[in-house]
Design a protein around this nucleic acid. Structure first.
Lengths: 344, 344
DNA sequence: CTAGGGTACGTAAGCGCTTACGTAAGCGCT
DNA sequence: AGCGCTTACGTAAGCGCTTACGTACCCTAG
């Protein structure tokens, strides 16, 4: 590939402004040690020439990268794409570029992507998606991130804890609690849960909230039918099938994310189970399509886009000694997919 | 930010393998001029040391970037996120990193993002989303891309033409044609179109297909009610409102993309218009949720993920003198949102 | 009037790679 | 034996920046 030069370089700016390279660099970086008039002149010249610093040279010389790496499970999952949208928005405002990696929900591959990003010398790593119960997996990632931070990197997690880095965390437990409570308020007694893969901390947390709500009302958590599948629409369909077959007495299904809820709705529709007349369904996340489904989905709203922005904000701020936790609000959004328990 | 070094450098590899820097570089780049045994030794050492080339130094020295810039309208729009997923997949297989920018459907901002990416010295630019009818806008982008390619950059467009670069293009006209035909086959005579912003080439092309299908059956295109809004769910809702109010005789709505179709369905539901009994609805794109809507959506399937991959493949191949066009297949997927026209 | 210190700027040494060019060794040929 | 050619490797010159350090100048204090 031929050299893509012909673009003005810093020397060109310096020459046109009749100053040295160092002064030009300082002026454009806004560092002190340059008189206001000279700095103005340099900036003016740079603008006229259409000068844009070569980020590769800059990074090589300074060691400070201006690109942020974002790891998601899958970009075409609305939960993650909304997070990505938030990250990209803020990054673009800050003049940063975002590099996206997909882990495909595979902890090994995710670790590999993380290593790759770090090897690529990104300055900031943002890692989203659920953590894994497997302690070996998590500690490998944790170690990688710790080393990265020791070398000056910044990192933050989104919706994920125990990584030893700053995190923006929804209260998954409270969310699960609110959903269960909502259903019990409607009179539901036989509740089933369509859960994502066992082994995901997000699953465990949301489920814990559901269980505790049941316990508070004197129900035995054993009454709760929990079906594990995965956090996709297909997973939701599969879980719904299993629930309908194995737990026919169920009158309400808690899907632990919206993608699964959509799958659940899809199965109920094809099985001609009226929602919410015969079965109530709730989701979790409130991805933007949730409001446009038929029936529209009762769910827990998480501010995904904002979470993305917040995570980047956290990573940009100077590090504190202890990892910070930034909670996110959550809100029970009641729509048409839930209704009173059917009389038996 | 402190220097993130401590990582092995090429000199370290060279020293350990007792060769010169140049030889090490050649061996790892797989270039010739190194005996097989020496090359093997060097690769071995590199592996042991966990050496990963610093992409910034590499790019600075060689001028060849290994990152691809992708411009989409919005990452949290499923159409684009599926394209992005495809690009990221292939890029990751090739060891390339993807930088994503959002243009927010604003031609000016899009141009700005394009300039930004080029200034950032990405090696490949992929630009997706509809083009604009405004010739000034397009020629500015065209010029920018031409200059970029002259300097050795690679570029490709996705679902967009007239940019003077390689393009992977669905046959929007044929798709529109197929939709209209399908509806007419079902007996619909009063068809309305919920179109995206006027001024988008995609809108014009899809609409042209619809019109030509009508013409072939001896219908006047004037019979077609076209309502312009924008390519979002909100746009679809607005368009549907207008259609119901201004064209009450309508029995079928062609939404020019799936996002709008979802908005249309949403409005019809809240206005209690049964689909497809009273109104048929079709979309365009077949985003993955389309099959899970209620009713599931009849639409034109476009292989978005594959389009993303193909575009990157195109850009990776050596350029030809004339821009290449790679058509994509499309397929009418008939689901539950369409049915026979109601008797009046 | 000079020493000391601050300010504004220039000089030059890298950052970690790639690559044009130089060199030495080995080969077949006349 | 001497020539040229190829092959395998080393030397060193950058790529376009940042930044530690050096220098000239002006200001104030003693």
């Amino acid at each position: 590939m031929s050299r893509a030069s012909h673009r003005p370089r810093l020397v060109d700016v310096a020459e046109h402004a009749a100053v040295s390279l160092a002064t030009a660099s300082r002026a454009l970086a806004g560092r002190e040690g340059v008189s206001t008039e000279v700095a103005d002149r340099i900036r003016q010249v740079a603008r006229e020439l259409g000068y844009v610093a070569n980020p590769y040279a800059r990074t090589l010389a300074s060691g400070a990268t201006s690109t942020v790496g974002l790891i998601v499970h899958q970009v075409d999952d609305p939960y993650f794409s909304e997070i990505a949208a938030g990250v990209i928005q803020l990054a673009s405002e800050q003049g940063l570029l975002v590099q996206i990696c997909q882990s495909g929900r595979d902890p090994d591959y995710e670790l590999q992507q993380l290593r790759h990003l770090i090897a690529q010398r990104v300055g900031i790593v943002l890692i989203s998606g659920s953590g894994y119960d497997d302690p070996r997996m998590e500690s490998a990632a944790r170690a990688e991130l710790a080393a990265f931070q020791d070398h000056g990197g910044r990192a933050a997690a989104i919706g994920r804890h125990a990584l030893g880095v700053d995190a923006v965390l929804p209260d998954n437990e409270a969310g699960g609690h609110a959903l269960a409570q909502h259903l019990m308020d409607l009179g539901h007694r036989r509740i089933a849960v369509a859960a994502g893969s066992a082994g995901l901390t997000t699953v465990a947390d949301r489920l814990a909230g559901v269980s505790s709500a049941l316990r508070e009302r004197g129900r035995s958590p054993a009454d709760l039918a929990v079906v594990n599948s995965d956090f996709t629409r297909g997973g939701g369909r599969a879980a719904a099938e299993q629930i309908l077959n194995d737990h026919p007495e169920t009158t309400a299904i808690i899907a632990l994310n919206d993608a699964m809820a959509m799958g659940v709705l899809s199965t109920l529709r094809s099985r001609r189970v009226p929602v919410p007349a015969r079965m109530s369904v709730v989701g979790f996340d409130d991805v933007s399509v949730a409001a446009d489904l038929a029936p529209s989905l009762t769910t827990i709203r998480l501010p995904m886009t904002e979470m993305g922005r917040t995570a980047l904000t956290l990573a940009l701020k100077p590090r504190t000694t202890r990892p910070r936790r930034r909670p996110t609000g959550h809100l029970l959004v009641v729509r048409d997919s839930t209704g009173p328990a059917p009389r038996t």
